[in-house]
Protein backbone atom coordinates (compact mmCIF):
# COMPACT_ATOMS: atom_id res chain seq x y z
CA UNK A 1 0.00 0.00 0.00
CA UNK A 2 1.37 3.39 -0.92
CA UNK A 3 0.36 6.80 0.21
CA UNK A 4 0.16 8.71 -3.02
CA UNK A 5 -1.05 12.25 -3.35
CA UNK A 6 -4.58 10.95 -3.58
CA UNK A 7 -4.23 9.29 -0.18
CA UNK A 8 -2.93 12.49 1.36
CA UNK A 9 -5.73 14.47 -0.21
CA UNK A 10 -8.27 12.01 1.23
CA UNK A 11 -6.64 12.28 4.63
CA UNK A 12 -6.73 16.04 4.41
CA UNK A 13 -10.39 16.05 3.57
CA UNK A 14 -11.28 13.64 6.34
CA UNK A 15 -9.33 15.25 9.15
CA UNK A 16 -7.71 18.49 8.21
CA UNK A 17 -10.80 20.38 7.15
CA UNK A 18 -12.82 19.71 10.31
CA UNK A 19 -9.73 20.46 12.38
CA UNK A 20 -9.14 23.78 10.64
CA UNK A 21 -12.78 24.71 11.02
CA UNK A 22 -12.63 23.94 14.72
CA UNK A 23 -9.48 25.99 15.20
CA UNK A 24 -11.10 28.88 13.38
CA UNK A 25 -14.10 28.57 15.68
CA UNK A 26 -11.84 28.68 18.75
CA UNK A 27 -10.02 31.72 17.34
CA UNK A 28 -13.21 33.68 16.77
CA UNK A 29 -14.45 32.70 20.21
CA UNK A 30 -11.23 33.76 21.98
CA UNK A 31 -11.16 37.00 20.03
CA UNK A 32 -14.75 38.05 20.62
CA UNK A 33 -15.15 36.70 24.16
CA UNK A 34 -12.49 39.01 25.57
CA UNK A 35 -14.44 41.98 24.21
CA UNK A 36 -17.68 41.26 26.06
CA UNK A 37 -17.78 42.44 29.65
CA UNK A 38 -20.44 41.03 31.94
CA UNK A 39 -21.30 41.46 35.59
CA UNK A 40 -19.13 38.42 36.18
CA UNK A 41 -16.16 39.79 34.26
CA UNK A 42 -15.14 39.11 30.69
CA UNK A 43 -16.76 36.17 28.88
CA UNK A 44 -14.30 33.29 29.20
CA UNK A 45 -12.42 32.18 26.11
CA UNK A 46 -11.42 28.63 25.27
CA UNK A 47 -8.29 28.74 27.42
CA UNK A 48 -10.22 29.82 30.49
CA UNK A 49 -12.92 27.20 29.83
CA UNK A 50 -10.30 24.49 29.54
CA UNK A 51 -8.86 25.58 32.90
CA UNK A 52 -12.31 25.31 34.47
CA UNK A 53 -12.75 21.85 33.00
CA UNK A 54 -9.49 20.72 34.61
CA UNK A 55 -10.64 22.37 37.84
CA UNK A 56 -13.93 20.50 37.83
CA UNK A 57 -12.17 17.18 37.40
CA UNK A 58 -9.76 18.04 40.22
CA UNK A 59 -12.63 18.98 42.49
CA UNK A 60 -14.23 15.67 41.74
CA UNK A 61 -11.02 13.82 42.65
CA UNK A 62 -10.70 15.69 45.92
CA UNK A 63 -14.29 14.99 46.81
CA UNK A 64 -13.79 11.30 46.15
CA UNK A 65 -10.68 11.29 48.30
CA UNK A 66 -12.62 12.96 51.11
CA UNK A 67 -15.36 10.39 50.73
CA UNK A 68 -12.92 7.49 50.87
CA UNK A 69 -11.30 8.98 53.95
CA UNK A 70 -14.69 9.37 55.60
CA UNK A 71 -15.58 5.74 55.09
CA UNK A 72 -12.17 4.63 56.22
CA UNK A 73 -12.56 6.57 59.47
CA UNK A 74 -16.02 5.21 59.99
CA UNK A 75 -14.95 1.60 59.36
CA UNK A 76 -12.09 2.00 61.75
CA UNK A 77 -14.33 3.47 64.42
CA UNK A 78 -16.83 0.66 64.00
CA UNK A 79 -14.14 -1.99 64.07
CA UNK A 80 -12.78 -0.56 67.31
CA UNK A 81 -16.22 -0.44 68.84
CA UNK A 82 -16.85 -4.06 67.90
CA UNK A 83 -13.47 -5.13 69.24
CA UNK A 84 -14.30 -3.64 72.63
CA UNK A 85 -17.85 -4.90 72.76
CA UNK A 86 -18.98 -7.44 70.14
CA UNK A 87 -22.64 -6.60 70.77
CA UNK A 88 -22.09 -2.89 70.20
CA UNK A 89 -24.41 -1.23 67.77
CA UNK A 90 -22.43 0.17 64.86
CA UNK A 91 -23.70 2.95 62.65
CA UNK A 92 -22.93 3.10 59.00
CA UNK A 93 -23.73 6.60 57.89
CA UNK A 94 -23.60 7.50 54.23
CA UNK A 95 -21.28 10.26 53.15
CA UNK A 96 -23.18 13.44 52.44
CA UNK A 97 -20.91 15.57 50.33
CA UNK A 98 -21.99 17.94 47.61
CA UNK A 99 -22.39 16.11 44.26
CA UNK A 100 -19.54 16.98 41.92
CA UNK A 101 -19.72 17.78 38.23
CA UNK A 102 -18.96 14.17 37.35
CA UNK A 103 -21.66 12.97 39.76
CA UNK A 104 -24.15 15.25 38.05
CA UNK A 105 -23.17 13.89 34.64
CA UNK A 106 -23.74 10.33 35.82
CA UNK A 107 -27.07 11.25 37.39
CA UNK A 108 -28.25 12.81 34.14
CA UNK A 109 -27.08 9.84 32.09
CA UNK A 110 -28.82 7.32 34.31
CA UNK A 111 -31.99 9.41 34.28
CA UNK A 112 -32.07 9.85 30.52
CA UNK A 113 -31.49 6.14 29.95
CA UNK A 114 -34.23 5.20 32.36
CA UNK A 115 -36.73 7.53 30.72
CA UNK A 116 -35.68 6.49 27.24
CA UNK A 117 -35.85 2.80 28.06
CA UNK A 118 -39.34 3.03 29.55
CA UNK A 119 -40.52 5.06 26.57
CA UNK A 120 -39.04 2.59 24.08
CA UNK A 121 -40.54 -0.40 25.85
CA UNK A 122 -43.95 1.24 25.56
CA UNK A 123 -43.64 2.92 22.17
CA UNK A 124 -42.17 0.11 20.07
CA UNK A 125 -44.86 -2.49 20.84
CA UNK A 126 -47.68 0.04 20.48
CA UNK A 127 -46.07 1.29 17.27
CA UNK A 128 -45.94 -2.24 15.89
CA UNK A 129 -49.54 -2.97 16.75
CA UNK A 130 -50.82 0.29 15.30
CA UNK A 131 -48.68 -0.24 12.20
CA UNK A 132 -50.28 -3.63 11.67
CA UNK A 133 -53.85 -2.74 12.51
CA UNK A 134 -55.69 0.10 10.86
CA UNK A 135 -58.18 0.15 13.73
CA UNK A 136 -55.49 0.49 16.35
CA UNK A 137 -53.86 3.24 14.31
CA UNK A 138 -57.11 5.17 14.14
CA UNK A 139 -57.57 4.73 17.85
CA UNK A 140 -54.14 5.93 18.81
CA UNK A 141 -53.68 8.68 16.25
CA UNK A 142 -55.62 11.52 17.95
CA UNK A 143 -53.87 10.93 21.25
CA UNK A 144 -50.47 11.00 19.60
CA UNK A 145 -51.28 14.08 17.56
CA UNK A 146 -52.42 16.01 20.60
CA UNK A 147 -49.62 15.07 22.97
CA UNK A 148 -46.77 15.14 20.46
CA UNK A 149 -46.50 18.93 20.23
CA UNK A 150 -46.74 19.50 23.99
CA UNK A 151 -43.54 20.85 25.45
CA UNK A 152 -42.42 18.28 27.96
CA UNK A 153 -41.78 21.08 30.42
CA UNK A 154 -45.52 21.57 30.57
CA UNK A 155 -45.73 18.02 31.89
CA UNK A 156 -43.22 18.72 34.62
CA UNK A 157 -45.56 20.23 37.23
CA UNK A 158 -48.16 17.54 36.65
CA UNK A 159 -45.60 14.76 36.87
CA UNK A 160 -44.02 16.28 39.98
CA UNK A 161 -47.33 16.52 41.78
CA UNK A 162 -48.50 13.07 40.76
CA UNK A 163 -45.21 11.46 41.74
CA UNK A 164 -45.33 13.22 45.12
CA UNK A 165 -48.85 11.96 45.66
CA UNK A 166 -48.46 8.42 44.40
CA UNK A 167 -44.89 7.53 45.27
CA UNK A 168 -45.01 7.46 49.07
CA UNK A 169 -42.84 4.92 50.81
CA UNK A 170 -40.81 5.09 54.00
CA UNK A 171 -37.80 3.63 52.34
CA UNK A 172 -37.70 5.04 48.81
CA UNK A 173 -35.51 3.00 46.52
CA UNK A 174 -35.35 5.89 44.08
CA UNK A 175 -35.32 9.59 44.74
CA UNK A 176 -38.54 11.38 43.81
CA UNK A 177 -36.58 13.83 41.71
CA UNK A 178 -35.11 10.96 39.73
CA UNK A 179 -38.53 9.51 39.03
CA UNK A 180 -39.98 12.86 38.08
CA UNK A 181 -37.16 13.61 35.65
CA UNK A 182 -37.25 10.11 34.16
CA UNK A 183 -41.00 10.22 33.59
CA UNK A 184 -40.73 13.63 31.96
CA UNK A 185 -38.11 12.22 29.61
CA UNK A 186 -40.37 9.23 28.94
CA UNK A 187 -43.27 11.47 28.02
CA UNK A 188 -41.36 13.15 25.24
CA UNK A 189 -39.42 10.06 24.08
CA UNK A 190 -42.66 8.20 23.36
CA UNK A 191 -43.88 10.00 20.28
CA UNK A 192 -41.07 9.89 17.72
CA UNK A 193 -40.49 6.20 18.39
CA UNK A 194 -44.18 5.37 18.28
CA UNK A 195 -44.85 7.24 15.06
CA UNK A 196 -41.77 6.01 13.24
CA UNK A 197 -42.34 2.42 14.30
CA UNK A 198 -45.96 2.53 13.15
CA UNK A 199 -45.01 4.02 9.79
CA UNK A 200 -42.15 1.56 9.36
CA UNK A 201 -44.37 -1.41 10.04
CA UNK A 202 -47.23 -0.10 7.93
CA UNK A 203 -45.02 0.50 4.91
CA UNK A 204 -44.07 -3.15 4.66
CA UNK A 205 -44.00 -4.15 1.00
CA UNK A 206 -47.41 -5.39 -0.15
CA UNK A 207 -45.91 -8.45 -1.81
CA UNK A 208 -44.27 -9.44 1.45
CA UNK A 209 -47.58 -9.05 3.24
CA UNK A 210 -49.06 -11.38 0.63
CA UNK A 211 -46.24 -13.88 1.18
CA UNK A 212 -47.20 -13.90 4.84
CA UNK A 213 -50.84 -14.50 3.90
CA UNK A 214 -50.07 -17.32 1.48
CA UNK A 215 -47.94 -19.01 4.13
CA UNK A 216 -50.67 -18.37 6.71
CA UNK A 217 -48.05 -17.13 9.14
CA UNK A 218 -49.23 -16.73 12.70
CA UNK A 219 -49.45 -13.30 14.26
CA UNK A 220 -46.21 -13.69 16.16
CA UNK A 221 -44.20 -14.96 13.18
CA UNK A 222 -45.62 -12.19 11.06
CA UNK A 223 -44.38 -9.60 13.52
CA UNK A 224 -41.06 -11.27 14.22
CA UNK A 225 -40.10 -12.33 10.69
CA UNK A 226 -41.81 -9.71 8.55
CA UNK A 227 -42.85 -6.52 10.27
CA UNK A 228 -40.00 -6.05 12.69
CA UNK A 229 -37.01 -6.56 10.37
CA UNK A 230 -38.65 -4.39 7.75
CA UNK A 231 -39.25 -1.62 10.25
CA UNK A 232 -35.82 -1.69 11.91
CA UNK A 233 -34.46 1.37 10.07
CA UNK A 234 -37.55 3.42 10.88
CA UNK A 235 -37.61 2.22 14.47
CA UNK A 236 -34.04 3.36 14.89
CA UNK A 237 -34.77 6.70 13.31
CA UNK A 238 -37.47 7.10 15.93
CA UNK A 239 -35.26 5.93 18.76
CA UNK A 240 -32.49 8.31 17.80
CA UNK A 241 -34.88 11.23 17.58
CA UNK A 242 -36.33 10.26 20.94
CA UNK A 243 -33.01 9.97 22.69
CA UNK A 244 -31.88 13.31 21.30
CA UNK A 245 -35.04 15.05 22.42
CA UNK A 246 -34.96 13.25 25.75
CA UNK A 247 -31.47 14.49 26.48
CA UNK A 248 -32.36 18.09 25.66
CA UNK A 249 -35.52 17.95 27.70
CA UNK A 250 -33.82 16.39 30.68
CA UNK A 251 -31.34 19.24 31.05
CA UNK A 252 -34.15 21.78 30.89
CA UNK A 253 -36.25 19.81 33.34
CA UNK A 254 -33.40 19.55 35.80
CA UNK A 255 -32.86 23.30 35.64
CA UNK A 256 -36.51 24.02 36.14
CA UNK A 257 -37.25 21.50 38.88
CA UNK A 258 -33.90 21.68 40.62
CA UNK A 259 -33.57 17.94 40.24
CA UNK A 260 -30.03 16.62 40.49
CA UNK A 261 -28.16 16.41 37.20
CA UNK A 262 -26.30 18.54 34.72
CA UNK A 263 -29.19 20.98 34.48
CA UNK A 264 -29.02 21.63 38.20
CA UNK A 265 -25.28 22.11 37.94
CA UNK A 266 -25.79 24.81 35.32
CA UNK A 267 -28.52 26.47 37.38
CA UNK A 268 -26.47 26.38 40.58
CA UNK A 269 -23.52 27.97 38.85
CA UNK A 270 -25.81 30.62 37.44
CA UNK A 271 -27.17 31.39 40.92
CA UNK A 272 -23.70 31.22 42.39
CA UNK A 273 -22.40 33.99 40.15
CA UNK A 274 -18.72 33.74 40.99
CA UNK A 275 -16.06 34.83 38.54
CA UNK A 276 -15.62 31.19 37.55
CA UNK A 277 -19.30 30.53 36.94
CA UNK A 278 -19.49 31.44 33.26
CA UNK A 279 -16.50 29.24 32.48
CA UNK A 280 -17.96 26.35 34.41
CA UNK A 281 -21.32 26.70 32.66
CA UNK A 282 -19.54 26.64 29.33
CA UNK A 283 -17.79 23.43 30.30
CA UNK A 284 -21.22 21.99 31.06
CA UNK A 285 -22.51 23.17 27.68
CA UNK A 286 -19.70 21.37 25.90
CA UNK A 287 -20.17 18.24 27.94
CA UNK A 288 -23.91 18.26 27.26
CA UNK A 289 -23.23 18.60 23.55
CA UNK A 290 -20.56 15.92 23.55
CA UNK A 291 -22.76 13.47 25.43
CA UNK A 292 -25.65 14.14 23.07
CA UNK A 293 -23.36 13.41 20.16
CA UNK A 294 -22.03 10.23 21.76
CA UNK A 295 -25.55 9.03 22.56
CA UNK A 296 -26.49 9.38 18.92
CA UNK A 297 -23.30 7.63 17.85
CA UNK A 298 -24.05 4.81 20.26
CA UNK A 299 -27.51 4.37 18.76
CA UNK A 300 -25.99 4.34 15.30
CA UNK A 301 -23.56 1.59 16.28
CA UNK A 302 -26.40 -0.35 17.85
CA UNK A 303 -28.40 0.01 14.66
CA UNK A 304 -25.47 -1.29 12.63
CA UNK A 305 -25.29 -4.27 14.91
CA UNK A 306 -29.00 -5.04 14.82
CA UNK A 307 -29.71 -4.20 11.18
CA UNK A 308 -29.66 -7.02 8.64
CA UNK A 309 -28.51 -4.67 5.91
CA UNK A 310 -24.85 -4.18 6.76
CA UNK A 311 -24.27 -2.21 3.57
CA UNK A 312 -26.87 0.42 4.34
CA UNK A 313 -25.40 3.90 4.61
CA UNK A 314 -26.21 5.21 8.03
CA UNK A 315 -25.76 8.79 9.05
Amino acid sequence: MTFGTAGIAEFGKALLIPLLAFLLFLGIWEFSAARIQTSLGAVPGPVEVWKQAVNLVDEHREERARQAAFYERQDKRNAEALAQDPSAEVHIRPYTGKPTFVDQILTSLVTVFTGFLIASLIAVPIGIVSGLSQTMYRAINPIVQIFKPVSPLAWLPIVTIIVSAVYVTDDPMFAKSYITSAITVTLCCLWPTLINTAVGVASLDKDLVNVGKVLRLGWFTRVWKLALPAAIPMIFTGLRLSLGIGWMVLIAAEMLAQNPGLGKFVWDEFQNGSSNSLGRIMVAVFVIGLIGFLLDLGMLLLQKKVSWDKEAVLR
Binding site: D205, D207, N210, V211, K213, V214, L215, R216, K225, P229
Partner: peptide
Protein backbone atom coordinates in the same frame (compact mmCIF):
# COMPACT_ATOMS: atom_id res chain seq x y z
CA UNK B 1 -58.46 -17.35 1.84
CA UNK B 2 -54.83 -17.58 0.82
CA UNK B 3 -53.01 -20.76 1.64
CA UNK B 4 -49.86 -22.70 0.86
CA UNK B 5 -51.73 -25.15 -1.40
CA UNK B 6 -51.77 -22.29 -3.91
CA UNK B 7 -48.22 -21.00 -3.81
CA UNK B 8 -47.55 -17.70 -5.52
CA UNK B 9 -44.39 -16.61 -7.32
CA UNK B 10 -44.62 -12.83 -7.48
CA UNK B 11 -43.33 -10.64 -10.26
CA UNK B 12 -40.73 -9.00 -8.04
CA UNK B 13 -39.43 -12.14 -6.33
CA UNK B 14 -40.68 -10.83 -2.95
CA UNK B 15 -38.08 -12.66 -0.95
CA UNK B 16 -37.55 -11.42 2.58
Amino acid sequence: EPGPDRAVVFQHHSLL
